[in-house]
Nucleic acid binder design. Structure first.
Lengths: 337, 337
DNA sequence: TTGTATGCGTTATCAG
DNA sequence: CTGATAACGCATACAA
């Protein structure tokens, strides 16, 4: 009996041969099954001898499940790098998937080529389910997942097109409204907003909430639209606001990073925070405690969101009916307003 | 001919049946092969009809390659969330893997349970290779990879134990020495260092370079040791330094994030930067341009590192001999020193 | 308890 | 050009 050729990994077949026992029995000791002590001993020795390591991929083919779920963030990459939220969501999801003995595989989609390849990967049987953050309704990946009926969960706003896929998120409208009202209650007269990512539901919703809070006092001239939830956008937006209304004394930034950028501009302009202008953010990310003064903001329970998202795909894997979940977002009042 | 049962996905077999042609021919139209126009048309119609989507996992089993490579960062998670470098490395790696039509799968290892599961995943045939950032020599995952002879690349310092695995990195010693010398050249008398992550090669090497630059003027009292490359550590380290030597007028922070934390402390303490104390960092991350004044630092070509790491595993996949690569790290002199 | 045979969904080989 | 048939590495129902 010739040894396995140089670059071939040992298989069940090999250990069976080495132990002088059938493959079926080998499989039985690997998983749980009735097998005599002697047979078990012989096989375990053989396993060590030939250096056997099971091929999970082959096992999955017959088992028809991969014990893996994909995690993908459909964001511009700059944000993927900067946003601490998505990292926390990821970790939260991994936590629950891990105890359920599922492998979380993180897929980055950063180009059209990526999109196509990831779609293939998702439909190729490598994952049992998927968690998608920041889905856009017309995203090809979202479409593929829906068509495949792959168990999935959206985090963020529910894309209207795919009612069948549950989501976990927060009430962006309500939260934005609440913190804006809180800001207004400090007696500010000219409250503006740096509205980011209006092409995304979260961004649009936050603006909606802001507008609702101000009611008749809402002044469209006082909202600066910026593309991303990041620091640079905050700088840009605050400059714009200051130029349009030098008397501005309150601002709601669409994210903490945006707020941090805005505060930088205010400091350069010699405005005191919160003495001259009160500012509030959104996310309660690490940015919030890093600013000077510390930022008042909306707490976004990122880790919990991740956990719930994972839980939701596991439910579907167990054929339990999925249910959407909306997590609470307490206001964290610090010193910036 | 009964339709495939409710929750079974259509297979090659099904489309063959639907088209009234053999499976072999179906496979040929899927991949490239000689097949008549009529047969092709019939099969394509059948594919659409039954909603066939290829099972890549099954294909990989017979092909003996997964067209996927794992990417794992063995970092404390706080860092994974904060360090923009690793994100950039990831994106760089994905770039080259993507054009090579390989799927990059990001694995997070965040607990002992994760470690074991990821090791199984890696050895289970799900990936053809792996990129490991911040490997520690005694990490179980590193060991598994070495034993499996899985084509891999380390990014960072080469773990001495596994000479067979190539690495891509930068010259931490040289870079640290260079920027410290540059700082000293501005006439500073009492130069300290906030040394982070000394348990990692990069951290230890930066301290070595710092020491080398100062030579006889090196004063061990002026190095504050902190655990991580993050903002909070910078705060802690700078406080320590200020207490030990109020006359300190220069500091080399082990990373930009650390430098940012340190600058915060200096500002609170009423010290001018760079008038009273000059400060330099490491990484040239987004932190560097965000500080006030902008940070002088060592540019770390994160994206290039990622690209090279990917290239290195692809080389091994093609059976080309691997070669380590050390990337240049230009000094970027801004306003903080 | 153990061995045998069959199937998971593809690709590949080799006659027709 | 096309159709059987044999792998790929593993699990499992069934028979022994």
């Amino acid at each position: 009996m010739a040894p396995p050729s140089k670059h071939r990994r040992a298989t069940v077949h090999d250990v069976a041969a080495a132990a002088g026992i059938s493959r079926g029995t080998v499989s039985r000791v690997l998983n749980g099954g009735y097998v005599s002590a002697e047979a078990r001993a012989a096989i375990e020795a053989a396993i060590a001898e030939v250096g056997y390591v099971p091929n999970t991929a082959a096992r999955n083919l017959v088992m028809r499940r991969s014990q893996a779920v994909g995690f993908l963030a459909l964001e511009p990459h700059s944000l993927l790098l900067e946003d601490p939220n998505i990292g926390a969501i990821m970790l939260g999801a991994n936590e629950v998937l891990s105890v359920a003995d599922h492998q979380m595989v993180n897929l980055v989609v950063d180009s059209a080529r990526d999109t196509e390849r990831v779609a293939r990967y998702l439909s190729g049987g490598f994952v049992d389910g998927a968690i998608i953050v920041s889905a856009r309704t017309h995203d090809p990946i979202t479409r593929v997942i829906a068509e495949l009926k792959l168990p999935a969960t959206f985090v963020g706003h529910p894309p209207d097109l795919h009612r069948s896929i549950p989501f976990v998120g927060i009430d962006n409208v309500g939260s934005a409204r609440a913190i804006t009202e809180r800001l207004a209650a400090t007696g500010r007269r000219h409250i503006g907003m740096i509205a980011a990512a209006l092409d995304r539901d979260s961004g649009a919703d936050r603006l909606t909430g802001f507008r609702a809070a101000l009611g008749a006092r809402f002044d469209p001239r006082l909202v600066a639209e910026v593309p991303l939830y990041d620091y640079a956008s905050g700088v840009k937006g605050m400059r714009e606001l200051l130029e349009r209304e030098p008397g501005i004394d309150g601002v709601f930034a669409a994210s903490d990073a945006v707020a941090a950028g805005a505060m930088e501009v205010l400091r350069d302009a010699g405005r005191g925070v919160p003495s001259d202008v009160g500012i509030v953010g959104f996310d309660d990310s690490s940015w919030a405690s890093r600013t000077q003064p510390a930022l008042s903001t909306v707490h976004q329970p990122a880790r919990e969101i991740g956990r719930n998202a994972a839980e939701l795909v596991l439910r579907q894997l167990r054929d339990e009916g999925p249910a959407n979940v909306l997590l609470p977002t307490p206001i964290v009042w610090r010193a910036s307003a």
